[in-house]
Design a protein around this nucleic acid. Structure first.
Ligand SMILES: [Zn+2]
Ligand SMILES: [Zn+2]
Ligand SMILES: [Zn+2]
Ligand SMILES: [Zn+2]
Lengths: 154, 154
DNA sequence: CATTGCAATGTTATAACATAACATATATTA
DNA sequence: TAATATATGTTATGTTATAACATTGCAATG
């Protein structure tokens, strides 16, 4: 599996999926929340909150403020549509929302492309480590930084 | 293995170990760097940069500034004596510096105690995931948040 | 023993990331 | 419609981290 960016149809499907989930779960996918989600997924790479802020300000031709963006992000994260990458203070779209609670990531330091890598074997291994330490997991941050195939060949 | 805090003798050993490593590797363990390391390891729990700043200002009876603390932290991280927990913007001491490049963590959200959990099986699993994705790892953030045994029983 | 170079620290300012608090608007629903 | 809840606007501020440049102290070189 290479770390290519998403195709237009994948993006559209992803947006549509979020709309459907919101509809069937009676979640208010407001204009702002939808805009923020689209900005994040269409970016292909992890995006920063203030980049989203600039983008949304440009789109709407009027300045938005940090709380607007952070609130939308909070909504999207709470519902599993977006993840925060703590190691780089950035946000990415989830391409399999509701599939599982946690997602793990590969992040290329060179081209900034990222990839979700949520194998079960990894999940199991983390789970076993927790059990071995009598620890009850509530959430996991796994962010693997390095170089993707393309970038390590250059 | 429970998540108890370190004993006084463990702390002393940890500080002594860093001194020895610096001596034999000709690393300048200056007064400030030593102070910051001691503040971090003696804290037992993840500590924030500005808490270190306050502590060091009190100890020396004169105000220190952010760059002073961040520079010391950088030195300590570079040499593997301290880790940053990205999920909580905090710093912890390493109790087996140079043993391996990456450390993984269990962090109790209730009592804030943390535990390094660097099993090889976990490392291998992460390594396999990277290989499977043709990805070359440079550094890994694995932070498992939840509740320790004591806190989940309360 | 200058002088030069370098590593570390001091200092000031500001950048980057995030939230508090309260006002206003918009949508539900009684 | 009135009451309630949900979402957004707005201002200000809190928190985390770094840039940039001055100063110090110490050791290598001539
Ligand atoms: Zn995901
Ligand atoms: Zn790449
Ligand atoms: Zn460690
Ligand atoms: Zn605990």
């Amino acid at each position: 599996m290479s770390m290519k960016s998403k195709s237009t149809s994948e993006l559209k499907a992803s947006i549509h999926r979020v709309e459907e989930i919101c509809k069937s779960n009676k979640l208010g996918l407001t204009e702002i929340r939808k805009q923020v989600f689209e900005i994040i997924v269409k970016n292909n790479k992890p995006i920063k909150a203030y980049e989203i802020l600039d983008t949304i300000s440009n789109i709407n031709n009027k300045p938005s403020h940090p709380p607007t963006v952070y609130r939308a992000i909070d909504f999207l994260i709470e519902n599993g549509f977006v993840h925060k990458l703590n190691s780089i203070n950035s946000f990415v779209g989830c391409f399999h929302p509701k599939a599982h609670k946690e997602c793990y990531f590969l992040i290329c330091k060179k081209c900034n492309i990222y990839q979700e890598c949520c194998d079960d074997s990894l999940k199991d291994r983390i789970s076993k480590t927790a059990i071995h330490n009598n620890f009850v997991i509530s959430n996991t941050t796994l962010e693997i930084e390095g170089h993707c195939l393309d970038c390590s060949q250059k």
